[in-house]
């Protein structure tokens, strides 16, 4: 072969430099999204005892679902259990910042809202939190996406996105899915 050792090393250096450049561009794009646009995965080191979730406080049954908080923000609270969501349907206003807070009293679950980037694991012991904004009106599926036991396939809830004009919380700030 005509190619000598020095040319081999040279060609490799050239390729390695090009690939380092490709990797640097990818990393740069990711870092820009992270630091510039604040697009981060949903970390939230906030503890909660799975054994006492239902008893009282934020995730007691009467506090679940969507609520217009006294501070003005919209928070949707959910409990994922083997094998259902409470509540099984939540209503949210369109084009409005929404904070979703989810906990599990039993095993690992995961939620996603199909067609959106809402996606988080639900780990017993921690409160999962996702902040989002739903852009389109309609009803979307919100399944459990992590194996949680034999009934996992049946574990699906719904998110109903309504125009802001139709989002009517009650005196206490709570909004419920109306009968379809």
């Amino acid at each position: 072969m005509a190619i000598d050792e020095i040319s081999v090393a040279k060609s490799e250096r050239r390729w390695a430099t090009a690939m380092a450049g490709v990797s640097a561009v990818m990393l740069g794009a990711i870092l820009y999204a992270t630091l510039g646009l604040h697009l981060n995965p949903p970390s939230n080191v906030e503890l909660i005892d799975p054994a006492t979730i239902h008893v009282s406080g934020e995730f007691a049954e009467e506090n679940l679902g969507t609520r217009l908080e006294p501070t003005g923000g919209i928070v949707t609270r959910l409990v994922t259990t083997q094998f259902s969501f409470s509540p099984a349907c939540v209503v949210v206003p369109q084009d409005t910042p929404v904070t979703i807070r989810v906990v599990s009293p039993d095993v690992i679950h995961g939620i996603m809202v199909v067609g959106t980037n809402v996606n988080t694991m639900v780990i017993p012991g921690y409160v999962s939190r996702v902040r989002t904004r739903f852009t389109e009106v309609g009803e979307m599926l919100m399944p459990c996406h992590e194996f949680c036991g034999l009934g996992h396939s049946q574990m699906i809830a719904k998110v109903r996105v309504v125009p802001v004009s139709e989002f009517k919380p009650d005196a206490d700030g709570r909004a419920h899915c109306a009968a379809p």
């Binding site: 380092a20 490709v22 970390s43 080191v45 780990i123 409160v127």
Partner: peptide, 26 residues
């Protein structure tokens, strides 16, 4: 997508993950 590892822990390993593409490209 887990809540428990803080953002910084994830970011460090994300950067290292970019590097692991290099041996395949070589």
């Amino acid at each position: 997508m887990d809540p428990h590892p803080a953002t910084g822990f994830k970011a460090v390993q994300m950067v290292l993950t970019v590097l692991v593409a290099v041996p395949t490209l070589l």
